[in-house]
Structure formats: structure tokens, C-alpha cells
Design a protein around this nucleic acid. Sequence first.
DNA 1: CACCAGGTCCCCA
DNA 2: TGGGGACATGGT
Length: 349
Amino acid sequence: MTTAIRTGPKPNQEQDVSLRQLDHADTLELPVTGDGPFNFLHTAWKPSHYVTGLEAHTASRSWRTFRVDDLVTGVRMHAENRLVIAEVYTDGDYKPEHRDHLARRLTASYGLDEDLSQFIELATDVPTMRGPLESLSGMRQSCPEDHFEIAVVALLLQHVTVARTTQMTRNLLTHYGQLVRFDGITLRAWFTPAEIAHVSAEIFKEQDRLGYRAKTLPRFAAFFRDYPAEELTAAHDLEQTFQQIKGVGPYTAAIMASHASRDTASFGLDVWNRKILARRLLSADDAAPEAVNHRLNELFPGHAGTAGLYLVEYEYLNAPVAPLLTPGGDVDAWNEALAGVVAEPCNPR
DNA sequence: CACCAGGTCCCCA
DNA sequence: TGGGGACATGGT
């Protein structure tokens, strides 16, 4: 690995909605060590994912922010065959421990060390997987979010249109997150559980328009503030563990397990992907969740989550929720759209 | 102005 | 254990 660790303290930035400029601090070279094919584009960019402002993608590059403890980092990634090269940017005090943390986080978030060959073997024998395999082979589960962050995303997806999910996400990230600029791109960054610990359910409801889920967010913050991620990965029955949090049901728990804990056997069924899978697996317009899950596990024992991922992303491939950016004008327009956030009033009704 | 949205909780047979 | 309504908000 090449190293260019920038050390030296930086003054603490005050928490406001101003744009933080991040400087280049490191280059990480992350090998894909897991068996099976690797497809960088479809690993980094998922056509079914809604716009958060936390990441941006062109056909060959991905930008994404990560919170590494209190540090705010921006990462620009591309791949050379089975090597992912990540340029790291930050305005904080970047230490060697941050480098290790980030290398592990990126490797895990994009499944670089995960074995895809078993799933490919199973899928090759299933006719309905033919299209997905041809278009997406080498795609791995991606989850740049940690457990807290992905729980918030899943919470905001519950029982609302994606338009409103996007609105609530924008409110939260504008009010409690960060806006950063690095490598020519402007992105939002997450808030940590500690950073919203002082915010009441009332504020989440009134100011951030979260509706009845406003009560759940403080519970998430409290739960994850003192729950180490390692224990969440090692839990015996992940989905049952997560459902102990009020506001987390089968869907949200499965998202957390399949994404943040990377359990390839879990798959979060919502009404949309339930219909997609019913059509693909049961030749029906819709089906009971139990029937869909049963068939998925029957065909892909141990890899139901991966199979669901391939089928759902394939469905969205020709009409992505958030299309790829083209390097020129799209990126400029993207930056302008996010830069406008700074000037906007905090609480548009 | 009803109705409903990429769930979850709670209550009641 | 399982069905059915309520829940906040904003868009048709």
C-alpha cells in the first residue's frame, strides 16, 4: 500500500451548515480477496437506491463520505481489476488508526473479502437468474452505512413514498449532518448518534417532518451510542436482536442484518421488492412474504439475500432511481444543487 | 377531500 | 399466533 498520511492537528470546526473543504490525506489500495467475480460499478452504485447526497457515482468513479469516529472523511474510489484504489480526504487530524479503521470499513462495506462463488454456482442453475447474472455478475452487497446509519435509512423508508423518504433524509442531513467538498464534488455526511443525542422527538417531528417515526430516532441514537458494531455482527440471531429496538420490525431488522451485518441469508422484503420477487420466483403479481421468503431460501440456501439483491437491482437497472452522473455537466449541476442547501432556510414547510 | 405510501405497534379474539 | 386499525405527513 502506498502511504501519504497527513498528520498535524487542525482546529476543531464549529458545527454548522457551512461547506467544509476536505484535503487529501491518504491513498488506500484495497485488494479484492474474496473468491468470485468483482464488478466495481455495480458494487458501488445500486440502481434501486434513492438519492441521499451522501454519495455520487459516474461509470468509473465513486465518491462517498464516511464518519470515522468523530472524523469526517470523503473517499474517491475507482478500481483497477481486483484492486480498489481509495483516495481519502479529511479536514481533521488523520491518524494511522484512522487509516486502519477506514481500510477495514471500506473492505467490509463493499464486500471485497467476501466469497461470491457459492452464490454464483447456485444461481447458474436457476433460469430466472440468467439476466441478472449476465448484467450484474461480480456485484457485491454495498453498505457504506454503519448499523446506526442504515437503521435510520430503513426507518425513513417505512410506509412512505420514496419522495418523502428523500425529503426526511434531506432534512436530517441538513440539520444535523455536514456538507463537505473534496476532489471536485460536494456531498453530505452523516451525523453520529452522539450528535443527535440532545435532539428531542418533538423537534424531529416539528422541524424534520418525521411524523410518527420521530419517536424512534432518539431510541436509535441511544441504542447505538453505546453498542459496539462488533457485537452487532456477532449476535446469534441478528434479526431478533435488532427487533428489540422499538420501531424496528422484520423489514428494518433484515435491512440491518443483510446490509450492515452482511448476513447473505437475510433479505428485507418491502412491498416493492416483494412484488418483484413474486414475479420472478413465483410467476405471480404478488405473494405473501412467507411464500416469497420460502422460495428464495429454497433456491438459494444461505444466499437468499444475495439472490434478492441481484433480482431487485436487475429490475431497476434500466430505470435507476438515482442515475449515474456523467463526468462533465452533471457533476457541476449536482454540486450546485447541494451548495444551494447552505443558503436555504432550515425549516421549509 | 378522500385515499394511500418501499412498516410497525398494539390490541383483541 | 394472527388479523385489523392507528399512526404523521404530503402527494394525487
